[in-house]
Computed example of a mutant assay.
Amino acid sequence: MKFLSSSRYIIILLAVITLLSCSSTKHVGKNTSKNVKQAEPEKTDEVINLKKDVIISEEKKIDEAIKEIPKKIESTKTNHSSWNTLLQKHVSNKGHVDYKAFKSNRNELTNYITYLGNHIPQDSWTREDKLAYWINAYNAMTIDLILRHYPIKSIKDIKNPWDQRFWKLGKKWYNLNEIEHQILRKMDEPRIHFAIVCASFSCPKLQNEAFTPSSIDDQLTNATKVFLADKKRNDISQNSLRLSKIFQWFAKDFKQTGTLIDFLNQYSEITISDKAKKNFKVYNWNLNE
């Protein structure tokens, strides 16, 4: 932006010098030739007008260049299309994952994670950009973790699954716990708990589309509503709640602006009483396939 402002200043300065030069030429003409006394002003005016047109044209080009800057910045942010293709291919609408087939595309998954490592979020990124990046990264890494040990029956068959540092993003090696607790949860967005998936039956379903900055608010809302309406994960009535243990493990996250029931009533199809009794379901860690 500073470069563009300097360019505009230089162009205007050159125009002023040109105008002064033309004016000087005009006076010299008056003193040296009576024959061109009347014709010279007309010619000089034409030159001045031409210079003005050039200045206006250059300013328009500068304005157009300024408008293009956000587009160029946007193009440097992360593209999740390859992850979206993998999800479409190997995850059903109900969130069931075909790990055997996914393993046949392991190279594409590895390439996507490598791509994420080369496009680490910057301070200039929007909150939506960062949310989409880290949610997709978490889910891609979870799939990769399973594929490294597949066939298995549960993510818990892996020793310390959430502490494994298999993935390098930028200059740092990350594990799933760090992404969830040190990054995503600190963004004060409780709906992330219905977007990141632990490869287990009782988890929210893995979406078969990538999260994107432009759609992430709708995607998070939809994921939350679908999870609450799923009676295998939550059984909700006006006066009784049998909830996923996610609401017990991360209780603080759902009470940022009110009670847990206040949060649930934003996304539940059923209006829940403030006095509703709460219980939590046993968590099923079997693989989500």
Results as ranks from 00 to 15, higher is better:
residue 109 L to Y: 09
residue 124 S to V: 14
residue 146 I to D: 13
residue 249 W to A: 03
residue 196 I to D: 03
residue 17 I to Y: 06
residue 156 K to I: 06
residue 244 S to W: 01
residue 136 N to V: 12
residue 37 K to S: 08
residue 46 E to C: 03
residue 215 S to Q: 15
residue 245 K to D: 02
residue 182 Q to P: 07
residue 148 R to F: 09
residue 60 K to P: 01
residue 11 I to A: 07
residue 208 N to F: 05
residue 122 Q to T: 10
residue 24 S to C: 05
residue 259 T to R: 00
residue 169 L to Y: 15
residue 246 I to E: 12
residue 208 N to C: 06
residue 268 S to D: 01
residue 163 D to N: 10
residue 95 G to F: 08
residue 20 L to A: 10
residue 179 I to D: 05
residue 245 K to R: 15
residue 191 R to Y: 02
residue 1 M to I: 09
residue 29 G to E: 07
residue 283 Y to V: 02
residue 267 Y to L: 07
residue 202 S to P: 02
residue 118 N to G: 14
residue 124 S to H: 13
residue 284 N to L: 04
residue 200 S to E: 06
residue 212 T to F: 13
residue 89 K to T: 12
residue 96 H to M: 06
residue 207 Q to Y: 04
residue 62 I to E: 03
residue 49 N to T: 11
residue 284 N to R: 02
residue 188 D to S: 13
residue 204 P to C: 10
residue 235 D to C: 00
residue 79 N to W: 03
residue 198 C to V: 11
residue 147 L to I: 11
residue 17 I to Q: 08
residue 206 L to I: 08
residue 216 I to E: 06
residue 209 E to S: 08
residue 257 T to H: 11
residue 119 H to Y: 08
residue 175 N to P: 04
residue 18 T to K: 05
residue 240 S to P: 06
residue 185 R to K: 14
residue 213 P to E: 08
residue 125 W to P: 05
residue 149 H to S: 13
residue 242 R to A: 02
residue 106 R to W: 06
residue 263 F to P: 01
residue 18 T to N: 05
residue 13 L to N: 09
residue 265 N to Y: 00
residue 111 N to M: 12
residue 107 N to V: 14
residue 166 F to N: 14
residue 154 S to I: 11
residue 205 K to Q: 15
residue 259 T to D: 01
residue 224 T to K: 02
residue 192 I to V: 14
residue 177 N to M: 10
residue 153 K to N: 15
residue 25 T to V: 14
residue 113 I to R: 10
residue 201 F to Y: 08
residue 240 S to V: 01
residue 92 S to K: 07
residue 43 K to F: 13
residue 101 A to R: 15
residue 288 N to F: 02
residue 102 F to I: 06
residue 145 L to Q: 12
residue 175 N to C: 12
residue 20 L to C: 12
residue 199 A to P: 11
residue 90 H to S: 06
residue 217 D to L: 11
residue 227 F to M: 11
residue 207 Q to I: 05
residue 14 L to M: 09
residue 260 L to W: 00
residue 242 R to G: 00
residue 75 S to I: 01
residue 229 A to K: 00
residue 237 S to Q: 00
residue 145 L to S: 09
residue 154 S to G: 07
residue 151 P to F: 09
residue 154 S to A: 13
residue 52 K to C: 05
residue 164 Q to V: 14
residue 31 N to C: 03
residue 130 K to F: 04
residue 17 I to M: 07
residue 61 K to T: 06
residue 102 F to G: 05
residue 150 Y to Q: 10
